[in-house]
Design a protein around this nucleic acid. Sequence first.
DNA 1: TTGAAAGCGTTACCAC
DNA 2: GTGGTAACGCTTTCAA
Lengths: 349, 349
Amino acid sequence: MANIRDVANHAGVSVSSVSNVLNGRTNQMRPETLARIRQSMRDLNYLPNRVAQQLKTGQARMIGLLVPSIVNPSFAMLTREVDRVAKANQYRVLLGNTYRQEDEEKAFLEDMFAHGVKGVIVVATAMDRPHFANAARHGMVMVNYDSLMSVHAPDGNPPFDSVSMDNVEAGRLAAEHLIERGCRQLVFVTEATQLPSRLHKIEGFYSAVNRHGLQESAQVIEGKAGEAYGDAEMTELGRSLAAKVLEQSPRPDGIVAINDAMGIGLMAGLRSAGIRIPQDMSVIGIDNIPLADLVQPPMSSVMPPLADMVTMMVDRLLTRIENPDLTPEEFLFVPKLISRQSVIEKGEP
Amino acid sequence: MANIRDVANHAGVSVSSVSNVLNGRTNQMRPETLARIRQSMRDLNYLPNRVAQQLKTGQARMIGLLVPSIVNPSFAMLTREVDRVAKANQYRVLLGNTYRQEDEEKAFLEDMFAHGVKGVIVVATAMDRPHFANAARHGMVMVNYDSLMSVHAPDGNPPFDSVSMDNVEAGRLAAEHLIERGCRQLVFVTEATQLPSRLHKIEGFYSAVNRHGLQESAQVIEGKAGEAYGDAEMTELGRSLAAKVLEQSPRPDGIVAINDAMGIGLMAGLRSAGIRIPQDMSVIGIDNIPLADLVQPPMSSVMPPLADMVTMMVDRLLTRIENPDLTPEEFLFVPKLISRQSVIEKGEP
DNA sequence: TTGAAAGCGTTACCAC
DNA sequence: GTGGTAACGCTTTCAA
């Protein structure tokens, strides 16, 4: 591999001049010198050594992406978007799976320090764990995806940048849609662990229910998923919660599932129990994973504007790497209803 | 961040000594010196700077993973395994999505060179594209996953290391299973693009069919998927191929799908047409993605021993980084049948 | 407009 | 056993 010195020799200039063109400082440069250097780079097939650049500048041109599990389709979609936006900014993505394990998170952050990575996108995890604050104190910039924190610092500022779907709005949208289509006995089905995003969805659900005076007949049904992650557990939980839903009397006619994986499991469970969807019961999920469109019937869902959210996250990350003193902010994105066939048509019996 | 010099000062030794303990050259060292250095590292919260190590040694402790699309669940599972095994070897994973685009592949390889990454796992893509040979010539070590090449160099050696499921065996296993369960009108459903892995599966399918004298009634049905990747397209294609399957007369009673995504789409399409699975028709996929267990009925499939395959790939990669002159080899792994409910029980009508 | 040289944090060779 | 130091490839300040 040719290095900057080879290029300089080949072009008959000094290393500095080559470095100048690498870094866009070509305004003061005689055009023919510039041309000669460019040509030499091409001749020698020169690729600047990022490692050396990095050692010098401290800039890694890599960002970390820490997800609970890449096997979860929501996070896989997110990862693809992050890769896309990072690439557009000439960055590459270092991936880490944590399975929500604290020591995996810690090890990942340490490796990011060691590799000179300055920015990490942290997905849907408990940001109040001390190693995050610790990493921040040592200059790691982090943006959180989808776990808005409830506790803020005494100055009223959130501790980290955070990008989320407006979960209240998501829950509201889902419930409104069911009500608008004629459902009156509403249920919100969720996993028992109380994450902020989940509480917000429930809040939105109730705001729609109350607005229509349906609070008497609405309720939340929850179950506890196993340890592991991936969506298999979530789907299984959904399947098992079908029984609980069917115990209710009067029988519910509209169900909001906390996420698509749960909704899909629920539909499977209901169908095994002889329930027709959407004729007997309507189901809507939240997240809009590709699978929602592949099950029978295709499941309606509430979709976060993923591309915009990821663009914001990467922008924020790169901006704050430049300017670490920006006060953290929380960004909320408005979700959209995706109507498929798991919710009854208006006027359908 | 403390550096090696800080540690040396704090411990009252030279940088070299600290470096020696970093690199395990402690045999000659006075135990108390060693202890003092270790203590200083802890006191200062020292993390060796991998970037500097890398600049010096050329060793990145990162491997690249190039997949068509992380959104495809097979590749997501693969990625998780690669992350796991890499971590066990103190490596991190740089991820790239190519959407099977040549320029994305090229850009990724260039970035790997620039970042000092010496080894890349290349997934399921046309390894005969010239930039791969080119990268190899410049010292990049690559292991291919799941696209055994048909053309070998004149010396009889394959051009790259390659780790694959035994696709012939996979196709054979799937067909044998259907036959064993009583199916007689067999169809193999596939995407039209001829990848080596696909041809091998078809070959295995026919070997089983021939062995049982069913060649007259067996056939391959194919359709062309759109540009994009991800499994949505594959699933859609499966759904649309249901019609083609139903056109056949006599009607098929056992179907092997080239992969699970296609099989799931196919089952959906067949069901919409009123076919009961497995009573009217049996379906088996290949790959065993998590989703196979979540659809209705859960789909039987042929499972590659993913963990073993990934361990082999990473081992090979790290070994060849050390010793680039090893001649490339091809490794084949025997798949296993996973029986679920999409294939008729023996003796069932 | 171009060049010389110091320095980023580490390794490894060679002295002592 | 331990320490001094050149070198990895680049950026950037300062001088010419």
